[in-house]
Simulated scan of single mutants.
Amino acid sequence: PRAIAHLVRQHGAAAVIGVQQRDRVVALKAARRCGVPGVVTLQNQHVFWGPWPLRAVKERYYRHHVRRGAALALAVSDGVAREAHERFGLSPQRIVVVPNAVGDAQPTDHAAVEQRRREFVDDAGLLLLSVGRIDPQKGFDVLLPAIAAVRGQFPALRVVIAGGTTQGPRAAAAERHARELQAQVQHLGLADTVVFAGFRSDVAELLRAADAYVQPSRWEGFPLTLLEAMQAERPVVATEGAGRPAGFVDGTHGYIVPTGDSTGLAKAITMVLQATPLQRMEMGRANGALVRANYRIDDVRRRSADALEGLVGGPSTRPAEHIAE
C-alpha cells in the first residue's frame, strides 16, 4: 500500500482501482493512506481458497476492508452486485453494474467456419460447443451426464469442449480435475461423443461452426464467451450460475436452467437440438439483436467512465476507452 500511495501522490491520481480479488485490499489500503477514493471492479463471484479456518479468515479480512474502503464497486452483473451487497456489506448506492461487452462482429470467414465444422462432424452431424478452462467452476462434470442422457436421441451429436487447464497455484488441482473428467467420459460411454479440444485460438470460427452453445458453469461473473456465442447468433443453453443476460427470454434466445442441474441441462439441450435449423437460426438472430442492443462495448465504456467521473467529481482527463480497461 505504501508504494502504491507514493505513485498516487506522484502522478496525482484521482482514485485507486483494485481489479483482481487478490489486489483489492491492497488498493483500498493505498487509497485510504493517500486520501483518494478506493474503487473495486468485481468480475466474478468470490471464492476463498485454502483449508476452512484460513478461508474464513481470508473472507472476514476481505469483507472488512471492502465494506470500509470501497467508495465504488463496478460489478459485472446483477448477481455479482447482489453478492457485494449481501455478502460483503456494500450499500447498493456504492454499486454500479457494468456488464461485459463485445465489439462489433467481425466478417465471417465462411471457408474457415466450414473447415472447423468438418473437423468434428459430417453433413448429418450436430455440433454442440462449450468454451472454458478445465476447472470445477465451469461445470463440465455436470454437463457430461446431460450429454449421456440425450445422446440416444441424437446419435450424430458431437460435443466439443474448448479450453486449457487452470494455471498458477491451482494447476495441480486442475490437472487432477481434467483426469477426472476423462474418466467420467469413459464411464458414461461418451468417448465417441465428447472431444476435449484444449486451448483454441479459433473460438470465433468454432462458435460460427456450432449448432448451439452451452455454458454449464457453477458460478461466473458474466461470461464473455456467452456473449460471444450470442453475438455469433447461436442459440445458447446456460445455467443460472453463468448469469442471465438482460432481455433473455427462454425459448426465444435459448434456455437458462438451475445451476448444477444435469437433468435441466439435458432437457434444454434436447429442446434446442430438436428445433429445426430455421428455428435455431431464429434463436441465434434474436441473440445477435439482444447483444447489439444491450452489450455494445462503447456503451459499457461510457457507463464505466460516468461512474468514475461521478465519484471523483468531474469529467476524467483520460479517454473513456482507457478508463474502462
Rank of each mutant, 00 (worst) to 15 (best):
4 I>N: 00
63 R>W: 00
197 A>I: 07
119 E>N: 06
41 T>W: 14
323 I>W: 08
264 G>E: 12
94 R>C: 10
1 P>N: 11
310 G>F: 01
308 L>A: 05
76 V>T: 07
285 R>V: 13
315 P>R: 14
111 A>T: 11
44 N>T: 12
325 E>P: 00
197 A>C: 07
280 R>K: 11
77 S>W: 01
205 E>Q: 15
301 R>T: 12
135 D>C: 09
45 Q>G: 07
142 V>T: 12
75 A>C: 13
129 L>C: 08
115 Q>F: 02
64 H>W: 15
71 A>T: 02
146 A>I: 05
99 P>G: 05
290 L>K: 05
273 L>K: 03
281 M>Q: 15
160 V>G: 07
283 M>Y: 14
242 A>D: 10
18 G>V: 09
16 V>T: 12
259 T>G: 07
198 G>F: 12
31 A>R: 02
107 P>W: 07
223 P>Q: 10
248 F>I: 08
277 P>S: 11
140 F>L: 09
257 V>S: 08
82 R>F: 03
59 E>W: 05
117 R>F: 03
271 M>E: 15
172 A>N: 13
74 L>A: 01
312 V>T: 13
181 L>W: 05
183 A>I: 09
19 V>Q: 10
207 L>C: 05
148 A>C: 06
206 L>R: 06
280 R>V: 03
131 V>K: 04
141 D>P: 01
212 A>N: 04
25 V>T: 07
179 R>P: 00
27 A>V: 12
300 V>T: 12
319 P>F: 04
109 D>P: 00
287 N>P: 04
231 Q>P: 04
208 R>L: 10
319 P>N: 06
15 A>Q: 08
114 E>K: 11
130 S>K: 04
95 I>E: 00
77 S>D: 07
118 R>M: 10
254 G>Y: 04
296 R>Q: 08
310 G>R: 01
201 S>N: 13
97 V>G: 00
45 Q>L: 11
93 Q>T: 04
197 A>Y: 06
150 V>C: 10
179 R>E: 15
108 T>V: 15
303 R>F: 00
318 R>E: 14
91 S>I: 00
55 R>T: 15
86 E>K: 03
195 V>I: 13
139 G>Y: 01
194 V>P: 03
54 L>I: 14
77 S>M: 05
304 S>N: 11
45 Q>Y: 03
227 L>V: 07
81 A>V: 00
287 N>T: 13
140 F>I: 00
321 E>W: 14
233 E>K: 08
301 R>D: 12
52 W>N: 07
219 W>N: 04
216 P>Y: 07
133 R>G: 09
19 V>F: 09
